[in-house]
Amino acid sequence: MRGNSLLALNAGESGTVFGIVGNQLAAKRLADMGFVRGARLEMVRPGAPCIVRIDGACVGLGAGHQASIALS
């Protein structure tokens, strides 16, 4: 299932982070905020931007970030 990004999750679906892809400036920030391999995510509201729940907190993420979070 490698290669799925956060963009593929529907409302209520969960996924596990595989890693950060792409070479954008904020890549390290995403990792630092907890989007690391193994982190469980739940899509609360899909779209651009979307809302995902990570470790009990809700984070709003723009499309650029969603594309760079790969799920396993």
Partner: peptide, 8 residues
């Protein structure tokens, strides 16, 4: 524009 990132 850079992508949005904000904790709610």
């Amino acid at each position: 524009a850079p992508p949005f990132l904000l904790e709610l």
